[in-house]
Design a protein around this nucleic acid. Structure first.
Lengths: 325, 325
DNA sequence: ATGAAAGCGCTAACAT
DNA sequence: ATGTTAGCGCTTTCAT
């Protein structure tokens, strides 16, 4: 691997001149530049990026920590975040914390050790971590770590209203709600509280099924929902996240229920997989692209020293037409 | 951000001593070490990893290039690759080339510029790229770039046999095969050629539907397969990748076909989403975890200078029970 | 316009 | 056992 020193030697110039020629900075005679560029090509010179980062004080890498790459919502988020970062000339490092205790700490450290220029956090806050003390660019998506770290999240109040409205207008009298316990202050919980409130205000009975927010991948398939089979049987409406909703649909149909005639299902997130099942799922769609864009735009602002960033950024949700309501 | 120089100053010692104390190398008096460690803590010292990499000549980062993060097969691959790399103390950088022309080149360059210690390639070979000239750790999964770069791939001959056997034994007489054109030398094409050969040898009629291997995300949903609606109608058996298979199932059921009574469907890949549809898809499962493990193990060997690596590593496939055959 | 030299933060070899 | 120094590959003064 040849260095600028080799080029300098070959071209018969000083290393400073080589550096200038390669970067196009400062004064350079046209023919000296040509000579140097030729030498560089002949030696198949590749600049050493980490070293450059050392000077520029940026690695051009941003990290993202997700609970589970394979969960469709985070898969989508990751995809768009990566694409957006690329637009800005940044690369993307992933950390999937599935099954590993406190694995996000590792990434927080790397952030402090200048491996990355910033970090996008999509996982639950970790007890005993003083995130405020990390004086590096950080943003959160859907999970709140601190008042002072920008949080990008969907409008889950509207989401909860939309979902509730769908089941209510469809005439449901007894709905089954899948909701995680705890983490009340996280914005994504609003969908559940709002939904529940509206149901109760409308005199509609609400059955509850607990799901754990940190255990929510494809384990939530047909097998998983079987434990709630009794509840599904009793309900005439269901509000659940994509994978659970798909599982419920399958379970219900297998038990001979007609969907949507006897049972309405409203899904939340409405990722592409909800178009695959039959009938397709009706529900509330999160704008994953927008979430990703705003998150990346925000962290770029911070990285570039722009201090006027909003700490609460709400993204609109929308209705997704399907065949289950 | 304080450096070892600051620590040296504060502790009243030389920087070399600080370095040794921090790394635990060489002789250090116990109390000097304590003094230094205290100073480090007080100054909230964080080592600068990129600089360390400069010396150790490793960044502890490995990249992976995929066609589409959101395609379930690559999502699974990415997840397991990331986890495996982590075990080895390596972090994972992703590159999704969706929609961007020659974007993988960017990553190949970063590899040469020492941003990463190695690269795992899962995308089609790019015309005009002399991959051999890149003297850095490389492995390929499912896509062959060169005889000399380790290729990890499923046993698609067995896969094709399994799939063909399923439809044949089920008594199909006219099957619809979804297969991409071109890239004949890629190992994953074997499933298609093998399948076709066995069908023809058995006197079973084969209808063909083309899919483009580089355009294969969730666009392959219910909408996509509609253009093949006539062919689906005519067939009594279908062999297709997961998303296409799911789409076909939906399309067929909507047209009143009974699955599996009138139409058998065999899927390929058999990722978790195939458990979500009703009935679940019968098919051939790739061992994504194993593919990822072997790929990571292999690149680790190369990174660590182990020259005895196999350039053709075949991973077994298996039968996945479902309700469509 | 260009070469020489300092230094980014750190490690490792060499003195002492 | 510890301080000093050279140097990793590069950028950026500062002379010339």
């Amino acid at each position: 691997m040849s260095s600028i020193r080799d080029i300098a030697l070959k071209a018969g110039v000083g290393i400073g001149t080589v550096s200038r020629a390669l970067n196009g900075t400062g004064y350079i005679a046209e023919d000296t530049k040509k000579k140097i560029l030729n030498a560089a090509r002949e030696l198949d010179y590749k600049p050493n990026d980490p070293v450059r980062s050392l000077y520029r004080n940026r690695s051009a890498i941003v990290g993202i920590v997700v609970p589970d790459i394979e969960h469709p919502f985070f898969t989508g988020l990751l995809k768009h975040v990566e694409q957006e970062l690329f637009q800005y000339g940044y690369r993307c490092m992933v950390c999937d914390i599935t099954g590993k205790e406190r694995r996000e700490l590792e990434f927080l450290e790397m952030l402090q050790q200048d491996v990355m220029d910033g970090l996008i956090i999509c996982v639950d806050p970790l007890a005993g971590v003083d995130i405020e003390s990390i004086r590096k660019p950080l943003v959160c998506i859907e999970r709140k770590w601190s008042e002072n770290i920008p949080l990008i999240h969907s409008n889950h109040i509207k989401g909860g209203e939309l979902a509730a409205g769908l089941l209510k207008d469809a005439g449901c009298r007894r709905v089954l709600q899948f909701a995680p316990v705890g983490a009340e202050k996280d914005p994504f919980m609003n969908r559940h509280s709002t939904f529940r409130r509206i149901m109760e205000e409308s005199g509609i009975e609400v059955l509850q099924a607990n799901i754990l927010s940190n255990r929510m991948g494809y384990e939530y398939d047909g097998q998983y929902v079987k434990q709630f089979s009794d509840l599904i049987e009793k309900a005439d409406g269901i509000f659940a996240p994509d994978l659970v909703a798909a599982g419920c649909l399958k379970e219900a149909v297998e038990h001979g229920r007609k969907v949507p005639e006897e049972l309405k299902i409203v899904t939340y997130d409405a990722m592409p997989l909800t178009r695959l099942v039959n009938p397709t799922l009706t529900g509330v769609a999160q704008d994953v692209l927008r979430l990703a864009r705003v998150a990346v735009d925000t962290i770029m602002k911070i990285i570039n020293g722009n201090s006027s960033v909003d700490c609460d950024l709400t993204i609109d949700v929308s209705f997704q037409k399907g065949g289950t309501v």
